[in-house]
Design a binder for these strands. Sequence first.
DNA 1: TTGAAAGCGCTACCAG
DNA 2: CTGGTAGCGCTTTCAA
Lengths: 352, 352
Amino acid sequence: MVKINEVAEAAGVSISTVSYALSGKRPISPDTRRRIEDAVRELGYSPNAGARMLAGSRTQIFALTEPLRKDTHAPTHMAFVLATAVAARRNDYDVLLLTDEDAKAGMGRVAANGLVDAILVLDVAPDDERVKLSRAISTPTIFIGVPDDNEGLVCVDLDFEGATALAVDRLADAGHRIVGLIGQPDVSYEKSNFPPRVRASFEERAEARGLAHVFATTGTKRTSRTATRRAVGQLRDAGATAFVLHCTEEAHAVVLGELAELGLRVPDDVSLVSVGASFDTGALATPLDSIPLVPEASCDLAVDLAIRSLGEDRPEPGLRLIAPTYVSNASVAALVPGAGVHSSPGSEGPTP
Amino acid sequence: MVKINEVAEAAGVSISTVSYALSGKRPISPDTRRRIEDAVRELGYSPNAGARMLAGSRTQIFALTEPLRKDTHAPTHMAFVLATAVAARRNDYDVLLLTDEDAKAGMGRVAANGLVDAILVLDVAPDDERVKLSRAISTPTIFIGVPDDNEGLVCVDLDFEGATALAVDRLADAGHRIVGLIGQPDVSYEKSNFPPRVRASFEERAEARGLAHVFATTGTKRTSRTATRRAVGQLRDAGATAFVLHCTEEAHAVVLGELAELGLRVPDDVSLVSVGASFDTGALATPLDSIPLVPEASCDLAVDLAIRSLGEDRPEPGLRLIAPTYVSNASVAALVPGAGVHSSPGSEGPTP
DNA sequence: TTGAAAGCGCTACCAG
DNA sequence: CTGGTAGCGCTTTCAA
């Protein structure tokens, strides 16, 4: 393994000059710089990671904690991990995976031994145990997700409330009077972070706009085909003419299939908007309007914040909510009174 | 961040004694050891990672390269990553994620800067570009999967050929004369490693046992419901009374659904065996016999090999194929001649 | 614009 | 059984 002194000799300069040439932390004459670069290339030199960590005070590594719960949606999760890794690499950082059963163990370890410069927290739960730990350690920590107790934390997330409100607004503007939300499996409304936020925002905005509203989940522990079909039935029974979907890709497909089987067309008979999806709703059997959760948006920002917390202008604690964007795929239409609507509005929700 | 000299002072011993007490590399008197351990605990000491890497020659980090292709099955993939991370932690190792677009870039980097002790290669392709690189670097590399050109490599994998042959044998032993294989999407037979191996082994063993055989895929680029249903039809049309499944969890479910819709019972009308599944086939609507791919088995072994390649008894290059295990769930029955079988055997495959 | 050299915190060798 | 100490390879003052 070639070391810095060999490069220095080959280039006919001192060790420190090589170091500075590589870090760019002080001006180097063009000629010297070229000789050094040549030597580096020819020898295939790459600064020893350990020595760098010890001498400098940067490790160029971020930890990523992800306490894989059983209800974790693998594809979405993977998209976040990947987006984080890519954003990190773009900034010359590597990513260390922390999947310890005890989420705190790994975090505590890397905070104590200085293996990483910052910690990125994924898959944040409302009562996340990592919150307390993050306050106790000095390693900068960025949350991708918003825990209940987020006082003093740096958090990044899609503005789920805003996204949901935007969806409801679009439907209300299109003249729909009864709207339904097809959500995640029941368990997600206890263990996860954003599903409850979406549901609450949905109901709140619906009431604010004077709409009746229904809510149904897509399973108990995990998304199930039958439960999802049933959800469609529940919403139709309640007279909903527009659905907001906040569920898995599979559930989206099942909803579309069920509607087709019922002979209902999108958007003529039912309007559909997807909220917080991290897959391409334009690639579904029927392309859907969407207010997507873009992993890259959250992760890029998180990595940026992590890097900034290592420098001078440390980011203020607080929530960074990413503004929702509406992607139209013509799956929402103005309600033509009477068309395809049941006569009885059902029992749930206020009937203005 | 507390350092070793503070621990030494607190315990009233020398720095080296602390180091040895922690590494266990030389005998320490019980009394001294206790005082050191107390000091470590009270001060919350954890040896600086960078210093350790520099002074010792171990980083306690493994790299995990995973060039996420678009056809990667996220849940399976995640299971492997998780299993690797867990196995690594059990051996006091952390895992660094290498997801660089150019798979070779990351591997080359960590090999050159000494950031990791060994590299674990996931998601191995038949013509994997990482094979060549692994031969050029000195960092020990373990492949989880078997590339075509594996000369001199250390590879770990389920014995897919053996597993498939075992499945065919069970069906043949049960008296089935026409067997079908429901495989992955078409693309997997070009880009991936084991699907072709399973198909080849299936056909070979079927012929060896004098069985007629059919093969059908579950999609072109990705698993699709329609293609999977069609596959069931193809197999039935060919007269197959027993199916070997080598496809996603979703496809398993679709196959079961389609059979139910056709009024076919398992195992009375059709026998089913799953091969290489990394999910629980006992939890399906109809529990299925399975010769599973157990991520833990592969990953534990891979980590073990990685660690051994750092010591004296370096493992020999070569394939480590994990012996298949048959998990019975009563989804295979003896063929009652005539029952539920089409009269014409179809055109595909030899008819002995 | 460049060099020399003092550490960074730990491991492991050499003594005792 | 325990201490002293020479590096590990790099970054970063301090000097020139």
